[in-house]
Amino acid sequence: MSTPTITRKISTRESTTVTLLLIGVALAYLLLFLGLPLVAVFVEAFKKGWQLYWEALQEPDAWSAIKLTFIAAAIAVPANLVFGVSAAWAIAKFEFKGKSLLITLIDLPFAVSPVVSGLVYVLLFGAQGWFGPWLQAHDIKLLFAVPGIVLATIFVTFPFIARELIPLMQSQGKEEEEAAVSLGASGWQTFYKVTLPNIKWGLLYGVILCNARAMGEFGAVSVVSGHIRGLTNTMPLHVEILYNEYNFVAAFSIASLLALLAVVTLLIKALVEWQAKRSGEPLHHGA
């Protein structure tokens, strides 16, 4: 009897054709939906040359929009950072009743349309709102002014840092902190010397995502801003106004700055992911 030939091949890989086809489809899809728009922003911005691009950015209204965007982010990100750290400390290091409800509530702003996020502040502080008459009587302007924009920005970026830190700190447990306390460290020393170094990459990761959203938020801010040029327009709102005035070059010039911010965000994010992997700190991906 001759040796039987093995006819059945064990297949744990796809054929080359299928592999190439899948890679092709994936790349085509990503280039069409992500690559092309990203390139298009810069192409449209420089369509009429450097000169016009540069002028568009130096326009006073554009300038004030850039400033307002940075102010809003500079308040919203630290505020949510403090919140994120204290929420994660309470949730990850202690056992208490109602914890999972609290986690759900923290995620709530993600489940709400940006427009609705703006709307709720109109309902609170608008002329017909709960605090409207009182604010008017004391001549305090929250809505259609900078404070309203900051509040709306805080709302939409509310969960970013907390939901990055909570799973991270939960996965790290509390033994190291207990060890620190048993060695005589105070609460602040424990946090500063033991907890913080262990979460630094996760913290940075959350801050970067939070900042990107804070600077780019459109819907919520649009509702509370009042669209006063040079006063209550953030960069995304200014893009809208310019675009609706058919001033495409100017619109895309500002947009190109925001796109640059996005690219830098992605770069830092990749860098942080790489660093975190190296230091063995598990990141919780996705926003």
């Binding site: 790349l27 990503l30 992500l34 690559g35 092309l36 728009p37 990203l38 298009a40 922003v41 449209e44 995502l209 990107a212 959203r213 600077m215 780019g216 938020e217 459109f218 819907g219 960069m235 995304p236 709102l237 893009v239 809208e240 675009y243 495409f248 619109a251 895309f252 947009a255 925001l258 796109a259 911010l261 996005a262 690219v263 965000t265 992605l266 770069l267 994010k269 990749a270 926003a287």
Partner: peptide
Amino acid sequence: IIDALVDLPFALPTAVAGITLATL
């Protein structure tokens, strides 16, 4: 690079995406 690019919609402000897609 492709992997990092996947997160672009998280990072790119929606208004920028809006005017770009409308133009495209």
